[in-house]
Design a protein around this nucleic acid. Structure first.
Length: 521
RNA sequence: GGAGAGAUGGCCGAGUGGUCGAAGGCGCACGCCUGGAAAGUGUGUAGGCGGGGAACCGUCUCAAGGGUUCGAAUCCCUUUCUCUCCGCCA
């Protein structure tokens, strides 16, 4: 979320910066107008409140002096203010929500140095802070050479009998895979290796976070409210049942049958205060409705109103949780709603977790193989820094991710994403693309972003400086790296003519010294 | 899942309708004391929002949301979370 005060001070810069972005729904002038009405509403309410508070104090004093006449006079005066205050509160709330909802769907401002562009075609290759193509080439692993035509990972995996898409489809549908035997172990080895690397050598703290999270956490890291369709929801069967009952209720009410008894029973339920009891009673009632259809609805409107109101209350009971699309969500939210002290920073967290993505917008893309799955493992890195150090931390995080590929001996390149290709919350993003000889192309294996205070504002994560000043922290996140894709890269880069896969040296300890996954293993 | 008890500032903890953003303590900061430190001692010490050039003023916040009241940390309702006991469970 951007700072409205900043937008107000720099409206031209705001419009210019976001013209490079897609789908920006508001202009600075519109937001400033919203803020003006918000401030006006606040001022009106607070003036009325100040008056009320002052009069109330006088009432207290008058009562203490037993001056009832004076007290009554003042009370009448305050009573008149009451409506004004309540109306003012409503206006204020509405104005505040309007502005907040607008700010929540505005993407972050790209940093100066980010290449302007429309899409991935405008991304620019990056060779490090002081790097050149030559120095980068020297520091990075080379492309492997083959004396045969390299196969894609799923050809090798299926031939080994250790990668099975068909059975996965039976169990879970498309975009799932089952790994078995040495290949399953190799996947685990890659995850362990990367996690150990970041913990032991790069200064990150290992975390086991929850995989199911609340709305608030997803607002914090900007998956909500804009990217709901990319997520999976975990709901309990009770919640599904509630939904079903509601549909049934509507159907029955619409059928225009006798409601007298129904109404009485709804009233009975309404008078009980316990939500669980209400839910239970409602369920029982609806079962009965479903079985007998014996109600004769005459007081239709009343019944409808009461039923709907009851359901509304029940909807405030427990809601579903979301499956994390990346460990960025729980890791970044570790600092939500807190004020850190400056010498705690930087905080560096890493976790190996499954990630769940609906891939709603990518039907038909990458359908073969395990490149794009609904569920995959990923090692994630998150850093929380002061505003001054986030730029340097971004370079460090990139090199931490690169180190994974260097140690695995996999050739790659780094791209600075253009403004059109960058994610919603990023100020600047580097993608690492691993070389996949089977596909004869580079594919994204890691994405490292600096978000400035964009997420910190949403989460209300702050830092108190040595001077006592409180500011929002900066947040960064990066994959270090995606495990499933790293497995693909290993399988394609280390494949042998006979269909076996050599195991990179750094992984061998995790494979009990196994040097190769053979055709008959 | 059942029964009960709770949630107050960075932390602990008092406060059951009026001048309470909140006693006291710890912690922290600065000063005094000291050769230096400890101890002792004094002062200060929440955040958001709005107004103002500023000093400062106003407003909101005692888990969250709603209500009662002229006035709520305090009374009522709902939700969330924590703890204890019982049940179930990897």
């Amino acid at each position: 979320m951007l700072d409205i005060n900043w937008i107000k001070a720099n409206p031209a810069a705001f419009d210019a910066a976001l013209s490079a972005r897609k789908n920006v729904p508001f202009k600075a002038s519109e937001l400033i107008a919203m803020d003006d009405s918000r401030r006006a509403a606040i001022l009106a309410v607070e003036e009325a409140q100040a008056l009320r508070n002052a009069l109330s104090k006088q009432i207290g004093q008058a009562k203490a002096q037993k001056d009832e006449a004076r007290a009554n006079e003042l009370m009448a005066e305050v009573a008149a203010l009451k409506d004004a205050i309540q109306a003012g509160e409503a206006t204020r709330k509405e104005a505040e929500e309007k502005l907040r909802n607008a700010l929540l769907v505005i993407p972050n401002i790209p940093l100066e140095e980010v290449p302007r562009g429309a899409d991935e075609a405008d991304n620019v290759e990056y060779f490090g802070p002081n790097g050149s193509p030559a120095t980068a080439a020297k520091a990075r692993p080379q492309k492997p050479t083959f004396t045969f035509k390299p196969r894609e990972h799923f050809e090798t995996g299926e031939a080994l009998g250790q990668m099975d898409f068909e059975v996965a489809a039976k169990i879970s549908g498309s975009r799932f895979v089952v790994l078995k035997g040495h290949l399953a172990r190799l996947e685990r080895a890659i995850g362990q290796f990367m996690l150990d690397l970041h913990v032991d050598q790069h200064g990150y703290t290992e975390v086991q976070p929850p995989l199911l999270v609340k709305d608030d956490a997803l607002y914090g890291t900007n998956q909500l409210p804009k990217f709901k369709e990319d997520l999976f929801v975990a709901t309990t069967s009770t919640e599904l049942e509630l939904q079903e009952m509601q549909d049934l209720f509507k159907e029955i009410v619409d059928r225009d049958e006798d409601t007298r008894e129904l109404l009485e029973r709804l009233e009975g339920l309404e008078s009980t205060s316990d939500g669980t009891e209400q839910g239970g009673g409602l369920r029982e009632l609806l079962h009965e409705l479903k079985e007998t259809r014996r109600f004769d609805f005459q007081q239709m409107d009343q019944a409808r109103t009461k039923g709907v109101a009851l359901f509304e209350r029940l909807e405030n009971l427990p809601k579903g949780l979301w499956l994390i699309p990346t460990a960025e969500v729980p890791l970044t939210n570790l600092v939500r709603e807190s004020i850190l002290s400056e010498d705690e920073l930087p905080l560096r967290y890493t976790a190996l977790t499954p990630c769940f993505r609906s891939e709603a917008g990518s039907a038909g893309r990458d359908t073969r193989g395990m490149l794009r799955q609904h569920q995959f493992n990923k090692v994630e890195m998150v850093a929380i820094t002061t505003p001054e150090t986030s730029g340097d931390e971004h370079e460090k995080m990139l090199s931490d991710a690169e180190d994974v590929l260097k140690q695995l001996g996999i050739h790659y390149r780094v791209m600075t994403l253009s403004t059109g290709d960058m994610g919603f919350g990023a100020q600047k993003t580097y993608d690492i693309e691993a070389w996949l000889p089977g596909q004869d192309t580079y594919r994204e294996i890691s994405s490292v972003s600096v978000c400035g205070d964009f997420q910190a504002r949403r989460m209300d994560a702050r830092v108190k400086g040595k001077d006592g000043k409180i500011r929002h922290v900066h947040t960064l996140n990066g994959s270090g790296v995606a495990v499933g894709r790293a497995l693909i890269a290993v399988m394609e880069n280390y494949q042998q003519e006979d269909g076996s896969i050599a195991i990179p040296e750094v992984l061998q300890p995790y494979m009990k010294g196994l040097k190769s996954i053979g055709a008959r293993s």
